[in-house]
């Protein structure tokens, strides 16, 4: 699992590449929290285009980051969600707290 970062204004954009399961969850959690804290990011956008697999461990990671960002009034969004990842997001009811946008441009407009 690889993470690629981009910082635009006060929004951190993270591209997740690979498979998000229990094995990598802890490492990803620590790395994301460090980056959010270093960049003092208010909002967070996950680019999921290259996320090939996600199970309920991934749901835990996403909800955990949402809680941290939400505490300080920020927003969390996802973009370029594949069909299989969309299925997990729907099942977990994640779209009640996290908005989905087609691309980065649309998401940034709503941050």
């Amino acid at each position: 699992m690889q993470l690629y970062y981009e910082n635009i204004d006060n929004t951190l954009i993270v591209k997740l590449q690979g498979e998000l399961d229990h094995h990598v969850a802890e490492k990803i959690r620590v790395e994301l929290d460090e980056m959010i804290s270093n960049k003092r990011s208010r909002n967070l956008i996950f680019n999921l285009k290259e996320l090939n697999f996600m199970d309920s461990s991934g749901i835990g990671v996403i909800i955990g980051r949402y809680k941290n960002i939400n505490k300080f009034g920020g927003k969390v969004a996802v973009i370029e969600v594949s069909e299989k990842v969309d299925k997990i997001f729907n099942l977990a009811g994640l779209y009640r707290i996290i908005d989905k946008y087609k691309n980065q441009k649309d998401a940034l407009k709503c941050m």
């Binding site: 199970d55 309920s56 461990s57 749901i59 835990g60 990671v61 909800i63 099942l91 977990a92």
Partner: peptide
């Protein structure tokens, strides 16, 4: 405490 979502069985059932 492990930030587990508690959705494991729900995923399997779905």
């Amino acid at each position: 405490e492990l930030e587990r979502s508690g959705m494991g069985f729900t995923v399997m059932e779905t």
